[in-house]
Design a protein around this nucleic acid. Structure first.
Length: 195
DNA sequence: CGACCGATTGACT
DNA sequence: GTCAATCGGTCGG
């Protein structure tokens, strides 16, 4: 047997222990999968943003607090935060322990567990709206505050990242980030086109 | 303490 | 296109 493509191959921890601005676009096309109570959901990552400690738009700008503590963990951990009084959003932490940076997961295309995603998201949500935003993604995948700070590279983690197929380089678009008021000029959002 | 605001979403004009 | 929902974090007094 040669180096067959195995759709179950986990993304190795070393992948995440690099600069968020490098990891973020390379994450496009990879798969995030969750398993809670034997309910499996997964999706292809299509939209991401990078956040770093010296970046005024980042939650860890200005140093560690109780809220952003997870951003300073080693690459491969999760940072889940609560926003606008009702939503949770998920980051995969990047870089080395002690420096705050990570990649906000802003959109996936559902692969497994679409019925579970529909149930979590509500009865009137169109399929294209299941996970095309950071809070929609977290809700569809069942990610919440219980997952803040967990290691997403362990074999028994309820949240894992699997190797997928990246888009062609010319199908990756970089843009300014969404919903921020500081650091608006930085083109640290990446969207992959897989058509 | 009180005031303000946010890495969003969904409903509505 | 506009805007309310809803609450923890942060900052000033």
């Amino acid at each position: 047997m040669t180096a067959d493509f195995n759709p179950q191959t986990p993304v190795p921890p070393e992948f995440f222990r690099r600069d968020a601005r490098v990891v973020a676009p390379e994450l496009l096309g990879h798969i995030i999968r969750t398993r809670f109570d034997d309910l499996v959901t997964s999706g292809r990552i299509v939209e991401v943003e990078a956040y770093r400690q010296e970046d005024p738009a980042s939650h860890c700008y200005g140093g560690m607090t109780r809220r952003n503590r997870a951003m300073f963990l080693d690459g491969g951990h999760l940072y889940v935060y609560f926003i606008y009084g009702m939503h949770y959003c998920a980051n995969i932490i990047t870089g080395q322990m002690g420096y705050g940076e990570g990649v906000l997961l802003r959109g996936v295309e559902p692969i497994e567990g679409i019925e579970t995603m529909r149930r979590r998201r509500g009865p009137h949500v169109r399929d294209r709206d299941l996970a095309n935003g950071p809070a929609k993604l977290a809700q569809a995948l069942g990610i919440g505050p219980e997952q803040n700070g967990i290691d997403a590279t362990g074999p028994d983690s309820p949240v894992t990242f699997l190797v997928g197929s990246p888009p062609r380089p010319d199908q990756i678009i970089a843009t300014p980030r969404i919903g921020i008021t500081k650091g608006v000029d930085l083109p640290w959002r990446w969207v992959g086109n897989f058509k």
